[in-house]
Design a protein around this nucleic acid. Structure first.
Lengths: 342, 342
DNA sequence: CGGTATCGCTTAAACGATTTAGACGAAATA
DNA sequence: TATTTCGTCTAAATCGTTTAAGCGATACCG
């Protein structure tokens, strides 16, 4: 495997300067059309596919790569419906703007990843990062946008979690006799499915789940209902399996809740499945609400009552904010979708 | 945003040469422990997080980045169970070996992507690439491994599709009176769900689906059964929705098949759902087989009869082959899993 | 004690491109 | 005819590293 041909080589062969070859690739306005065509076709013939990435990036001080830093492992993020949509939106906008997307997970911090962190021109953080990458990257002084969380005055893209959940709770709760439970992810750092304790409730956290919880509680309170900590379940991750465990925990206890407010559709659909297994009718015996309005939510038999947010659009917006250098905090619109499960 | 601090700057401030700073980061054995510690801590203090990626990569001729080229769009690949597992395996091995993973889709060929193609040290192609990237990348002369397809004598990782499908068909077909259908993806370039025609059957294709089809036909033939082209359905993608359409197509026709051999579990599970909707009992009225043995296959009520392949291990193997410079063709083991649906 | 490893660090030459200032000839203007 | 302008192209500096080679000083060996 001989060394690849370089710009200098092709320049010499064609009989022009390297600047001309460079311009042929990067600044068409700098040379005559004929010469450009000639250079380009010669390059193709010689097997020179374009400027060497590292050299170009070193000299120009720009890589045209944007990093998306995921707060979870890659394989988990890929399988999460909202993360998937977000990535789709981001990658669309990046492709439209001639940027390359680099995916990283803040759960990893290999040397390779730390080194690669100096590569991108900008970062999109999706969810609060876990490791030490955040500080390191911020100290690079490159543009950043945070999604679904905020940090100081970094530009951020968020959802009005509190408001949406408050409205949803108000719509879903019928009267003060309802026994209301909540299933959400990542209230705590615990990596198991567990009930919250009274002390947990006093934790001050910036995670979106707490805004949602506070929204639920405010809406419930408005209807004269208190959601007790015992009926609030923490999941480590937004996964069906964990949600099913949580659903069983709640539905098999003595005082069975008749309304479960879930912080995602993935959870809500899992609750529906468990309810079916336990021969509970929805919504007669048990009402359920979700969040996100993913595709499956619309296809469910009863039609899941939930809050819609447009994942792809959210991704597009985040990427656009980064590319346009927006510095403000923005919110994506959400919309109550009242269907059959409440 | 002032320009970031460089190795030269910190070297001058600390009072050592740049080589020493470089060695502190890259070759601990080249300097005394004390000096290394001092350099590292000074760097941290000064906000120098490590070598500039592009410069390092230019000079060393190595980026420690491996590209995984997906034959489909990112969002589709992420949601496909086997692709997801493969990526998990690959990213594990890469992380263990201090490499960074860069995901690309051959469906895109933006300038940004073409430029970025010169960055990685090696490539893993998962599935036959669609665009022009393949030739371009091969001409770079960098190490490549192909997964689930072969190209000339590039090192490849594959499955014995023919053998497995032949065995599966033999196990699933009871006698010559069985009416057997097949649902698979990407026999053709068509992007719609359609039946194959007689002419289609003479297409010589290297796609894995054809090996599987030939395996099925061989197994069927062994049992005295012929699978007619009308009963072979092409899907554009391995997606539940498409599979459901195909299942309806087959199950609502006059001569309803009583065995459907599916080229993936995703398809098979979709067929099961449709069968349930049509009040067909499995396996009494309809038998179904899959391929892959994904998690859902094991959780299905009847237990899906299928062929197991270990996606994570396959990813690990592919990455290992690339890193170790293996040049041969390899196969991953598969295993018949005869359960309740056949 | 002279010669040779070894250690710990520095010097300086690449790596392959981009970019700026300027050279050059031809055409336009005065 | 002399000067300016314009469109093209070139020469040379530069980006921030890595790495082979080199260099004094100390340690080791026969």
């Amino acid at each position: 495997m001989e060394k690849a041909i370089s710009q200098k080589d092709v320049a010499k062969i064609i009989g022009v300067s390297t600047a001309t070859v460079s311009n042929a690739f990067n600044r068409p306005d700098q040379l005559s059309t004929e010469l450009r065509q000639r250079v380009l076709s010669e390059c193709a013939k010689l097997g020179y596919s374009g400027p060497h990435f590292a050299a170009r990036s070193l000299r120009s001080g720009r890589s045209d790569v944007v990093c998306v830093m995921l707060s979870d492992t890659l394989s988990y993020s890929f399988s999460d419906p909202m993360a998937n949509l977000l990535l789709e939106g981001i990658s669309d906008v990046l492709a439209e703007n001639q940027k390359q997307m680099l995916l990283m997970s803040s759960t990893i911090s290999s040397d390779a990843q730390i080194r690669a962190e100096t590569l991108p021109d900008g970062f999109i953080f999706y969810g609060t990062p876990r490791g030490s990458s955040f500080d390191r990257i911020l100290s690079l002084g490159k543009p950043c946008v945070t999604v679904d969380f905020t940090y100081k005055n970094l530009p951020s893209l968020n959802v009005d979690n509190y408001g949406a959940c408050c409205e949803l709770a108000k719509a879903a709760i019928r009267d003060k006799n309802d026994l209301v439970a909540v299933i959400g992810m990542r209230f705590l750092t615990a990596s198991i499915v567990k009930r919250l304790s009274k002390q947990d409730m006093s934790l001050p956290s910036k995670e979106i789940t707490w805004s949602r919880l506070l929204g639920f509680k405010a809406g419930a309170s408005d209807k004269g209902v208190d959601i007790v900590s015992d009926n609030i379940i923490h999941l480590h991750r937004n996964k069906p399996k964990e949600a099913e465990i949580a659903a069983r925990l709640l539905l098999m206890q003595e005082q069975r809740p008749n309304l479960i407010l879930c912080m995602s559709d993935v959870i809500a659909l899992a609750v529906c499945r468990v309810a079916q297994q336990l021969n509970l009718r929805i919504p007669e015996d048990l009402r359920v609400t979700g969040f996100d309005d993913i595709e499956e939510a619309r296809h469910a038999k009863e039609g899941l009552t939930t809050v819609f947010q447009n994942g792809i659009e959210k991704g597009r917006e985040a990427a656009t904010m980064l590319l346009e250098g927006v510095t403000e905090h923005r919110k994506v619109p959400v919309e109550l979708r009242l269907r059959g499960t409440h």
